[in-house]
């Protein structure tokens, strides 16, 4: 049980594929002009990631080591084709606004990286959890970016009524994507640095501090 939680937390927060590992950046920036697109892309990528993780983990013992990468790519491409046609059939509007980025899920580095680093070494259930965790991390990052950009750029959230009348249109254009992503990544890094520093201080505390009531104050002062 603890391991499952570990895998989930690692995917969503500790090793967030986009904000910390810096992979899968293309859909992260291109499909976040509105929150609706971001949710669509996040779900599509999570679906492909989870399915390919499960299938690769199922067949991991019969894949010859030397040609594993082409096999991974074919598996991923199969699921991407399924998603592409599903979205075209049931969400034609979403398919139009995401355009070429749905077939491009196949070269999303997150999926190949998880297949190589996790699914080909772990059992089916853990691979499934890892797919949900990593996909969840991607989903979280892209939806955050989508909400911020839509709010600043068109003044609405999930296409609701406009909150203010003169939005900064630049935010839904390409430069705004880079700018907001840069700010989000900077904030993430700031928090990460701070957490690292805190955990370093805690691990360096002498054992006498363990029961001290002023422990948290001490740590705060050292920061």
């Amino acid at each position: 049980m603890k391991k499952i939680l570990d895998i989930l937390v690692r995917g969503i927060l500790k090793e967030n594929p986009v904000l910390i590992m810096m992979i899968g950046l293309c859909p992260f920036l291109a499909c976040s002009t509105t929150a609706r697109d971001a949710v669509g892309m996040g779900i599509a990528a999570t679906f492909v990631l989870t399915c390919s993780n499960v299938l690769i983990s199922l067949i991991r013992k019969i894949i010859p080591h030397n040609i594993r990468i082409p096999i991974f790519i074919v598996v991923i491409a199969t699921f991407t084709t399924i998603v592409d046609y599903l979205i075209k059939a049931y969400f034609p509007l979403l398919s139009e606004s995401l355009g070429v980025f749905i077939p491009l899920i196949v070269v999303n580095c997150i999926i190949l990286a998880r297949a190589e680093a996790f699914a080909s070494k772990n059992n089916v259930f853990y691979s499934f959890v890892d797919g949900i965790g990593m996909g969840g991390g991607f989903f979280l990052a892209i939806v955050i970016l989508g909400i911020i950009r839509e709010f600043l750029g068109s003044g609405s959230i999930f296409g609701s009524k406009e909150f203010f009348s003169t939005p900064a249109v630049i935010m839904i254009l390409p430069p705004g994507g880079f700018l907001v992503a840069g700010v989000v990544i900077t904030i993430t890094k700031y928090i990460e640095n701070k957490l690292k520093k805190t955990s370093k201080i805690i691990s360096n505390l002498p054992s006498a501090c363990e029961k001290c009531i002023l422990k948290s104050k001490c740590i705060e002062e050292k920061l």
Binding site: P175, F178, G182, T186, K189, Y190, N193
Partner: peptide, 22 residues
């Protein structure tokens, strides 16, 4: 600053470059 170093400033710089390409 430490937090901006690396990818943060790289993204902001590319925002400016993208702005000029617009």
């Amino acid at each position: 600053p430490n937090a901006v170093k690396g990818y943060g400033i790289v993204f902001v710089t590319s925002a400016l470059m993208s702005l000029s390409f617009m």
